[in-house]
Design a protein around this nucleic acid. Structure first.
Length: 497
RNA sequence: GGCCCGCUAGCUCAAUCUGGCAGAGCAGCUGACUCUUAAUCAGCGGGUUCCAGGUUCGAAUCCUGGGCGGGUCACCA
C-alpha cells in the first residue's frame, strides 16, 4: 500500500489508480488473472505480418502499456514485451460500449493482453486490430517520464526496475553481462573444466588478502565468515582428483566502495592441474579475445576515450621492470626491501605512503599509483614479491619472487594467476608468516592460515596453474562503463533512514 | 575519512550567481476527436524546494550543522 509519508501528489496518483482497480473489479474483471493467452511475442507478430501481408493473421499479444492515444472512436496504444514494442488499436465499433469505455481505466504501466488481427495502418505501422483485451497486472504507480526516462542516479540504483523499464541502454548492459558469463562458462567447459560450487560461509576467510564480513551460525554457535575468494576449496578439489575445475561465484570483501569496488562481486576462478601460469596467460588472452569478438565482432573496444585492442598476444611485463621504469626504484635492492627504505624512496618521488604501512602494502601502492594507470592496453605484469603472495610457487632462480601474474585492461586489474604452491611444508610456513605479519602490522588484510587447507595439501596436490578473473570489471570493459555500479544490477548503497 | 558538486511537482528540468508571488514539459484529472505513434486541441488540479537551525521585513536562493547521492583524493588487491 501507499504509505502515509508519501507526498500528496504521489498519493493522489496512487489513489486514482486504486479507484480504477476497483472499477475493474466491479465490472467482474480480475486485474491479476492466473492465466495468460499469448500466441506471439511482439516481434514475432510483426514478422508474421511482414512475411505475408495478404493473409489474415489472428494473434494474442501481451505486454506493458507504454503509450495510449485516444481519438474518440479509435484508440492507439503501444505494448512492450521482452522482444520489443507493438502497436494495438481499439476501434469502438468492434467493442461492447462498456468495454470500450473501460479503456479509461487503463494506465500507463499496466500489463495487458490483446487479441485481434494484424494489419498495417495508413501511416504504415504494423498493428493489432483488437477484438478483445484483458488486464494482466494493474500497476498502481506510474512509469518514469517517457521522453527522458529516469536520470536520477540514486533512484536508478535504488529502483533498478524503473531504470530497466525506462532506459534501453541499461537493459542492454545486463543482456551483455549475461552473455559474457554464459560464454565464460562455455569456454571453460569446452576446455574440459568442470564447474564446482563451494561454500560461501566459511570458518576461515582465507585465500586472498582482504578483510572479511563476519556472521554467525546459531545452531553451531560459532562465528563464520563470507568467503573472500574461492581459491582454497577449489584447490582441495585438485587434491581430490579433479584436474580442471572452475567456479563462477560471488565473493565478499569488507572494504571501501568506489567506482571499481563493490563489497560483493563476481569472480571466475579456475585451477588446472599440470599447468603453470604461462599456460594460464594464454588461456586468459584467448578467453577475453573470444568475449570481445562475441560482444563487439572485432578485437577492439573504446574504453574511457581510449582504443584498446584485446587480441592476443598481450604485453608481458615483469613487475620489477615496470616499477623500475616508472619510479626508478629497484625493488630487489637491499634498501628497498625494508618498509622504511621503500617508504622513503616513495616519498622522494612525491607519493604519500602511510606511516604504518607494511612492505607489501607499500609495493601495492607503488603498483597502484605508478604502474596500473599506465596499463591501458592489455598487459600481464609478471612475477611478484614473495611476501605479498603466499599461495604461489617461487620463481626459478630467484627466491624473492613468485610465479604470479596480474592482467590489466584499461588501467584496471581483471585477472590474477599463480603457478600454485603445492609444497605443504613451505605452504604452512608462508601462511604462518602472513599470520605473523598481520599481528605485527595490525593489518587485517594479510592472508590467513587455514589448517584444513594445509592438511589437504599434505595429502598431495598436483602442480597447477590457478586463475581469478574479475567478471564485473571485464563486463565494464566490454560495455564501456567506468563504474562498477553500472554493471551490477543492485549495487550496495547506504539504506535510507 | 578530506575536498568539490548535486538534492525543486510522480518524472525530466527552470528559477539559486544578484534574497522579493516557485514555473515549464511529460504524467494525472475533465472534455473534443476514426490513422495516431513524443498525437492534437480546450480546460483543471498538483509543492514540507532533502532535514534542522540561523541571518533577514522577506530564504528554494545566503550562513552553520546533518542526511542521501555523485565525483575526486586517501584507504582497500
Amino acid at each position: 500500500m501507499s504509505n502515509e509519508q508519501e507526498p500528496r501528489a504521489a498519493q493522489a496518483h496512487f489513489e486514482s489508480r486504486l479507484a480504477k482497480l476497483e472499477r475493474l473489479r466491479e465490472r467482474g474483471v480480475d486485474p491479476y488473472p492466473r492465466r495468460t493467452e499469448r500466441t506471439h511475442t511482439s516481434s514475432e507478430a510483426r514478422a508474421l505480418f511482414e512475411d505475408d501481408e495478404n493473409t489474415e493473421h489472428g494473434v494474442a499479444v501481451v505486454g506493458r502499456l507504454m503509450t495510449m492515444r485516444g481519438m474518440g472512436r479509435l484508440t492507439f496504444a503501444t505494448l512492450r514485451d521482452g522482444s520489443g514494442d507493438i502497436q494495438v488499436s481499439f476501434a469502438r465499433d468492434r467493442f461492447d460500449p462498456d468495454d470500450y469505455q473501460a479503456l479509461k481505466d487503463l494506465d500507463l504501466g499496466d500489463f495487458l493482453g490483446v487479441s485481434g488481427t494484424l494489419y498495417r495502418t495508413r501511416t504504415g505501422e504494423v498493428t493489432v486490430q483488437a477484438d478483445s483485451y484483458s488486464v494482466l497486472g494493474k500497476a498502481l504507480r506510474p512509469p518514469p517520464e517517457k521522453w527522458h526516462g529516469l536520470r536520477n542516479v540514486e533512484q536508478r540504483y535504488r529502483q533498478r526496475y524503473l531504470d530497466l523499464m525506462a532506459n534501453d541502454e541499461v537493459r542492454e548492459i545486463f543482456v551483455v553481462r549475461s552473455a559474457v558469463v554464459s560464454a565464460i562458462r562455455r569456454f571453460m567447459e569446452d576446455r574440459g573444466f568442470i564447474e564446482a560450487e563451494t561454500p560461501v560461509l566459511v570458518p576461515v576467510a582465507a585465500g586472498a588478502m582482504a578483510a572479511p564480513f563476519v556472521t554467525r551460525h546459531n545452531a553451531l554457535d560459532r562465528q563464520l565468515f563470507l568467503r573472500i575468494a574461492t581459491e582454497l576449496n577449489l584447490k582441495k578439489l585438485l587434491v581430490g582428483g579433479f584436474e580442471r575445475v572452475f567456479e563462477i561465484g560471488r565473493i565478499f570483501r569488507n572494504e571501501g566502495i568506489d567506482a571499481a569496488h563493490n563489497p560483493e562481486f563476481t569472480t571466475m576462478e579456475s585451477y588446472e592441474a599440470y599447468a603453470s601460469y604461462t599456460d594460464v596467460m594464454e588461456m586468459v588472452e584467448s578467453l577475453v579475445h573470444q568475449l570481445v569478438m562475441l560482444t563487439h565482432g572485432k578485437s577492439t573496444v573504446t574504453y574511457d576515450g581510449q582504443e584498446i585492442d584485446l587480441a592476443p598476444p598481450w604485453r608481458r611485463l615483469p613487475l620489477i621492470d615496470a616499477i623500475r621504469e616508472w619510479s626508478e626504484i629497484d625493488l630487489l635492492s637491499e634498501e628497498m626491501r625494508t618498509a622504511d627504505g621503500l617508504r622513503a624512496a616513495m616519498r622522494e618521488r612525491g607519493l604519500t605512503p602511510a606511516e604504518d604501512s607494511s612492505w607489501p602494502q607499500l609495493v601495492d601502492k607503488l603498483i597502484g599509483d605508478l604502474v596500473e594507470p599506465r596499463l591501458i592496453q592489455p598487459t600481464f605484469l609478471l612475477d611478484y614479491p614473495i611476501e605479498m603472495t603466499p599461495l604461489a610457487k617461487a620463481t626459478e632462480g630467484d627466491a624473492r619472487l613468485v610465479e604470479r601474474f596480474e592482467g590489466f585492461i584499461g588501467g584496471m586489474e581483471v585477472a590474477n594467476s599463480f603457478t600454485e604452491l603445492n609444497d605443504p611444508i613451505e605452504q604452512a610456513a608462508r601462511l604462518q608468516a602472513q599470520e605473523e605479519n598481520r599481528e605485527q602490522f595490525r593489518d587485517e588484510d594479510f592472508d590467513r592460515l587455514d589448517e584444513d587447507f594445509v592438511t589437504a595439501v599434505e595429502h598431495g596436490m598436483p602442480p597447477a596453474g590457478g586463475l581469478g578473473l574479475g567478471i564485473d570489471r571485464l563486463v565494464m570493459i566490454l560495455t564501456g562503463q567506468t563504474t562498477i555500479r553500472e554493471v551490477v544490477l543492485f549495487p550496495q548503497l547506504r539504506t535510507l533512514e
